[in-house]
Nucleic acid binder design. Structure first.
Length: 705
DNA sequence: GTGGATGAG
DNA sequence: CGCTCATCCAC
C-alpha cells in the first residue's frame, strides 16, 4: 500500500537514539510491510524448515501402531535405510546390514519396505520380501502417502490465505511465515500496524515495546557475545518469536493428528532454517536469530550447508584446505571465485548467512521415476519387459494420485534408462496427448523404448533399468475443445488401431504409435524403417566390435558373428514356427487372441496415422492390397509395415539369443571385480582446473534468480 | 532428445 | 554403501 517509498539511504541506519529520547528500531515500516508480499529482500523475513524425524522409521512405527520408544529400523533388502532415534542410541546408522544391526541390538524391530511383486497389481508389505530381491522392487509409496498427509496437516494448521509452503522432499517442508507473522504482529502490536509517521514508509519503526521476549522452550542459538537481546530486542527478534510459536503449533498439529514428530528451524532464510532444523533432533526446534547467525555459522563446517554437501563442497575443502566456515570467511571474494565466478559469489554470500532464494509454493512434482538395480543382472528382453510392467504399474498409480485421471495434470514424456556395465543409455518419447493416459499405453511406450535400446547396442547383461515420466503439465480439458474435431479424430484412430485389432485379431506390431519421422523409434514410420533397421544393426555390430577387447567383464561374449547373422536374412526365409508368446512383450494385447485364424483370413490392413483426418484416401485401399506373408508368425501383413515387422522379429531374436547366453553369465561379476579402480574416488580427488560451466550453472540453480 | 552429473537421504 | 528418487545442464 501507500506510495512507492523513497529510497531510504539518507539516515544512519542504526538504533537512532537521535533526540536521545526513544531509541528506534533498525527496521522501517516499509520493511515490515514487505513481509506481506513474501519479499525476499526484507531483513525481517522469516522462514521455517520442518524435517520429520527418521521419517521412514516413523512411518512404520505409526503404521504398525508400535511404541515409538522401541528401536526400529526400516530394511531394504539386506540394508537399513532408516533408523529411529531409540535405535540410534545403540550406535546404529545406515550402512549397516540387517544382520549386523541385530547383533548390536537384538531387540531391533526391522520392517522391510513395501514391494511390488512381479505380476501383482499393487505394492504390499511382505514378510519375506528381503528374500526376493530378484522378483520384487521396492515401493516408497507408503512414505509418499504419509508425506502427503503431513503436508496437508501442515497447511491446515496455517491460515489459508497467509501461507506459503514448499515441499522440499518427502520429509521436509519449507514455510515462508512472513505474511503470517506480519498479520500476527499487527494484532499484537497495533502501534506498528498503522500508517507510518508522516506517511513515510522509510520511517523507522518504534522500539519493541517489551523488554524480555518469551522464547518458551525453543532452542536458541547463542550469539557468542555478551550482548543479548534481553536488553535490546528488535523487531526481527519478535518476528522470530512469533514464527517459532507458529512452528511449534504446526509441529503439535502434526503430532496430535498423525503422531509424527519432527524438528524445526526458524531463521531469516531457507539455508539457515534448514541448518536450524538439523541442529537439534529429534522433536525439537531451533531459532537462529539474526544476531546469532555469525556465531552459528562460523562454528560450522560449510559442508553442512545445502549444495555444499557434495562435490562442490569437496572442491572448496581441497582448494582452501579447510572445511570450516570460519576459515573460509577469511578468503576474499577473488579467491572464492576460483571455484567459478558465480559459484564464488554465491559461496561468499552464503557463508555470511545470505540466501535470498524464495520459498517455492509448488507442491507438485515434475517427474516421477521407478527403477531397479538388478543383482544379478538381467539378460533378456523378456526379463526387462516384465520389470517394465511393474514400473508402469508403479508410475501409473502414482500418476493417478497426482490427479491424472481427473485430468488435472499429465506427463508429457516417458523415458527409459538402461545401464549395462559402465555405460548407460536412455530413450524417450512423447506421450500421446490425444487420448486418456492408461497403463497399457505407458506399457506400450515403455516396451517400445526398451526395444530401441536393445536394438541400438549391447544391452545385456543389464544392471539397471529405470522408467520415468516427466514434463507434467496442467491438464487440458481433453475432448471437447475443437467442436467434435478431436472427438472424430479419436474415433477414427480407434477404428484404425484398437478397433481394427478387434476385427482382425491381435497381431504383434500392428498398432504402433508413430512418433513422427523421428529416426530411432523402433516402430517408427514405415518409410524410414528399413534404413533405421540397417543403421541399428550396423551400430549394434559396431558396438560389439569395439567393445569386445576392452570388456574384461563381459565374459561369455556371444559369438557376435552368429549374433549379427540372423537379421541379415529375409524374415520370410526363417523358420515358420509361430511364436505367439512373443506378442506378449511388444503388445499389451494378449497374444492368445486369434493369430491362427488371422493367418488365413487375411484381414484388411490399413496404415496407422497420427492424423487420420489428413487427406490420404486412395492409399487406404491400395495399401490394404499390398501385402506380404510372414512365415514366422503365419500372418499376412501390409507391405508398408514389413520393415517394422522385420524389426519386431529382430528384437525377438535378439532377446532369445541373450536369453540363451544368460546361463553362461552368472559369475562374470567376479571377473569384473579385479579391474583396477581407476575411478577418481569421489571423496578427495582434487578436481581439475577446468571447472566452471558446471559451477556457474549450479549456481544459477542454487541461488535462485 | 540423450547422456551425464549432482545432490539428498 | 547401495539404492532410490529428483532435477538440471551441455551437447
Amino acid at each position: 500500500m501507500s506510495s512507492p517509498a523513497p529510497a531510504f539511504a539518507s539516515s544512519p541506519n542504526l538504533s537512532i537514539t537521535s533526540p536521545r529520547r526513544i531509541p528506534k528500531s533498525r527496521f522501517t515500516y516499509k520493511q515490515l510491510q514487505q513481509l506481506k508480499s513474501y519479499s525476499t529482500q526484507t531483513p525481517l523475513r522469516v522462514i521455517a524448515h520442518v524435517d520429520l524425524d527418521a521419517f521412514y522409521a516413523q512411518c512404520e512405527t505409526v503404521r504398525l501402531g508400535l511404541d515409538p520408544a522401541k528401536p526400529l529400523a526400516v530394511q531394504q533388502w539386506q540394508g537399513l535405510i532408516a533408523i529411529n532415534y531409540p535405535a540410534r542410541a545403540y550406535g546404529l546408522s545406515r550402512h549397516v546390514t540387517s544382520t549386523e544391526a541385530l547383533k548390536v541390538c537384538p531387540d531391533l524391530i526391522m520392517q522391510h519396505v513395501a514391494t511390488w511383486k512381479e505380476g501383482s497389481e499393487k505394492w504390499a508389505y511382505s514378510a519375506d520380501a528381503f528374500k526376493e530381491i530378484a522378483t520384487r522392487k521396492v515401493s516408497l509409496d507408503p512414505y509418499r502417502q504419509e508425506s502427503r498427509k503431513i503436508l496437508a496437516c501442515i497447511r491446515e494448521a496455517l491460515p489459508r490465505d497467509l501461507q506459503r509452503v514448499e515441499k522440499a522432499s518427502v520429509d521436509e517442508v519449507f514455510m515462508d511465515l512472513s505474511a503470517h507473522v506480519h498479520s500476527v504482529l499487527g494484532e499484537r502490536y497495533p502501534e506498528v500496524r498503522g500508517p507510518p509517521p508522516y506517511d513515510d514508509p522509510s520511517e523507522y519503526l518504534p522500539r519493541v515495546p517489551t523488554t524480555v521476549l518469551d522464547w518458551k522452550a525453543d532452542a536458541l542459538v547463542e550469539t557468542g557475545e555478551e550482548d543479548g537481546e534481553e536488553r535490546d530486542p528488535d523487531w526481527d527478534d519478535v518476528v522470530m518469536v512469533v514464527a517459532s510459536e507458529i512452528v511449534r503449533d504446526v509441529r503439535k498439529a502434526v503430532f496430535d493428528k498423525l503422531k509424527y514428530t519432527c524438528s524445526g528451524g526458524v531463521a531469516k532464510n531457507k539455508m539457515l532454517a534448514k541448518l536450524g532444523s538439523g541442529y537439534k533432533k529429534p522433536n525439537q526446534q531451533t531459532v537462529i536469530r539474526n544476531r546469532a547467525i555469525k556465531h552459528f555459522l562460523s562454528e560450522m563446517k560449510f559442508t553442512k550447508i545445502r549444495m555444499l554437501g557434495g562435490k562442490l563442497g569437496d572442491e572448496a575443502v581441497a582448494m582452501f584446505g579447510t572445511d570450516k566456515v570460519k576459515e573460509l570467511l577469511d578468503q576474499p571474494l577473488d579467491q572464492l571465485k576460483r571455484l567459478g565466478d558465480d559459484t564464488g559469489s554465491w559461496l561468499y554470500n552464503t557463508i555470511r548467512g545470505e540466501d535470498h532464494s524464495e520459498v517455492n509454493p509448488r507442491t507438485q512434482i515434475k517427474s516421477m521415476l521407478s527403477a531397479k538395480s538388478f543383482r544379478p543382472a538381467i539378460n533378456s528382453f523378456e526379463q526387462g519387459v516384465r520389470w517394465l510392467r511393474i514400473f508402469v504399474a508403479d508410475i501409473f498409480s502414482r500418476c493417478v494420485e497426482e490427479g491424472v485421471l481427473e485430468n488435472k495434470r499429465r506427463p508429457r514424456t516417458i523415458n527409459l534408462h538402461h545401464r549395462q556395465g559402465a555405460q548407460t543409455r536412455s530413450r524417450q518419447s512423447p506421450i500421446p496427448q490425444g487420448k486418456p493416459l492408461s497403463e497399457d499405453m505407458l506399457f506400450d511406450l515403455a516396451k517400445n523404448l526398451l526395444a530401441q535400446v536393445v536394438v541400438d547396442g549391447r544391452a545385456w547383461p543389464c544392471a539397471n533399468l529405470s522408467l520415468s515420466v516427466g514434463g507434467f503439465e496442467d491438464g487440458v480439458t481433453n475432448n471437447k475443445g475443437i467442436g467434435g474435431f478431436l472427438v472424430r479424430g479419436e474415433e477414427a484412430k480407434a477404428m484404425m488401431s484398437s478397433g481394427r485389432s478387434t476385427i482382425s485379431g491381435g497381431e504383434p506390431p500392428a498398432k504402433r504409435r508413430r512418433t513422427k519421422g523421428n529416426i530411432k523409434n523402433f516402430f517408427g514410420p514405415p518409410s524410414d524403417k528399413k534404413r533405421d533397421f540397417d543403421a541399428a544393426r550396423a551400430v549394434l555390430m559396431a558396438r560389439q566390435e569395439s567393445t569386445r577387447e576392452e570388456d574384461t567383464d563381459d565374459v561369455e561374449e556371444e559369438d557376435s558373428d552368429e549374433f549379427g547373422a540372423p537379421p541379415l536374412e529375409e524374415p520370410e526365409a526363417r523358420p515358420k514356427t509361430p511364436t505367439p508368446e512373443n506378442d506378449l512383450y511388444l503388445s499389451s494385447t494378449p497374444p492368445s487372441a486369434q493369430p491362427q485364424t488371422i493367418g488365413s483370413s487375411e484381414p484388411p490392413r490399413i496404415q496407422n496415422h497420427d492424423n487420420p483426418d489428413l487427406p490420404q484416401p486412395q492409399n487406404l485401399h491400395q495399401q490394404s492390397l499390398d501385402t506380404f506373408f510372414c512365415g514366422k508368425c503365419n500372418m499376412r501383413l501390409p507391405t508398408s509395415e514389413k520393415a517394422e515387422h522385420d524389426d519386431y522379429h529382430f528384437a525377438m531374436e535378439l532377446s532369445k539369443e541373450m536369453r540363451a547366453e544368460e546361463r553362461t553369465v552368472p559369475n562374470m561379476m567376479a571377473a569384473a571385480k579385479h579391474t583396477p579402480a581407476s575411478k577418481p574416488s569421489r571423496g578427495r580427488g582434487r578436481p581439475p582446473g577446468g571447472r566452471d560451466e558446471k559451477g556457474q550453472a549450479k549456481l544459477a540453480f542454487g541461488r535462485q534468480t
